[in-house]
Write a protein that binds this DNA or RNA. Sequence first.
DNA 1: AACCATAGTTGTATAATACAACTAAAAAAC
DNA 2: GTTTTTTAGTTGTATTATACAACTATGGTT
Lengths: 154, 154
Amino acid sequence: MSIISDLSKAVRCCRQDEVFCEDVTFTQFIILDTVAGNESLDMARLHEILAVDKSTTTRLVAPLIRRNLIVREKAGHDSRAATLRLTVEGKEVWEKVWQCLISFIRSIQEAIPEKKRKSALEGIQVFLCALQNASAMRCAGNAGSECCRCADPA
Amino acid sequence: MSIISDLSKAVRCCRQDEVFCEDVTFTQFIILDTVAGNESLDMARLHEILAVDKSTTTRLVAPLIRRNLIVREKAGHDSRAATLRLTVEGKEVWEKVWQCLISFIRSIQEAIPEKKRKSALEGIQVFLCALQNASAMRCAGNAGSECCRCADPA
DNA sequence: AACCATAGTTGTATAATACAACTAAAAAAC
DNA sequence: GTTTTTTAGTTGTATTATACAACTATGGTT
């Protein structure tokens, strides 16, 4: 139990620099990073990746558009759909935050005794898989249960 | 890098049942649990444990008081200070959510191959320590740096 | 008595998130 | 070709968590 609360605290600790770098939140960076990995990206694809409500995707992208880090265009195949691309400024910001994050991750790795690094990374991956599976199972398994109300699993 | 984003996603997955159980969020449960572990608890102690701003502690506790799960009293030693206690109803809700959580944690454990359980738990603990250390170091180490703005480490 | 520090609250604000309802476009059914 | 259904994304509304600044009231120090 304390692991989950520690997990939650650790992630908040991480996100506490909510204005993470270049006035970009961690979630916003995830979006920049996802869009950077493609010439352009469908909104539909983005909210699949983010695993949030479509409305949330719209809200998360809006400040990045407002700040001219991302530009939104009509998709060729469907006028309802939109595609996203990084602007020149968006690429610059993405690079800067990326460097920031790299050094942060490096300091995490350096804080782990070298002999334990491999098993730590394996351990956490196994745990995260289990956590996600358990969450998915809980939603499905408890469907209709009054005890728990669940959103769709990611 | 993807570990941190997976971590963030996993914790959100966990907290996605934000109305976790009995209409209590995960953070609210943490508070109930912390208060339950003591006959009564100082607010000052609570916000040390939560590692958030004092104002945030006030905000987090308010809905629990409003719903009569927690009661706030003046501390004996200092009229400015407040102490918190669970009500009878608060204890009932705590027990219910606790059971919920226990079965959730059990399903996480069951989702991990038995042979890997010990190393997974060790791995994640090592990682979380490193993450928290890295966060603290980053705030301290970068003090004054324009690149990163930091809140106080936890 | 005056000044400083502390405990907690309140005003203000941001970020993330979701549900319901909506518009407009595309796909399916007839 | 028309009608109905589905889909992509937006908007209204709302909650939760969080922090900074400023505040009041109380306690501690000089």
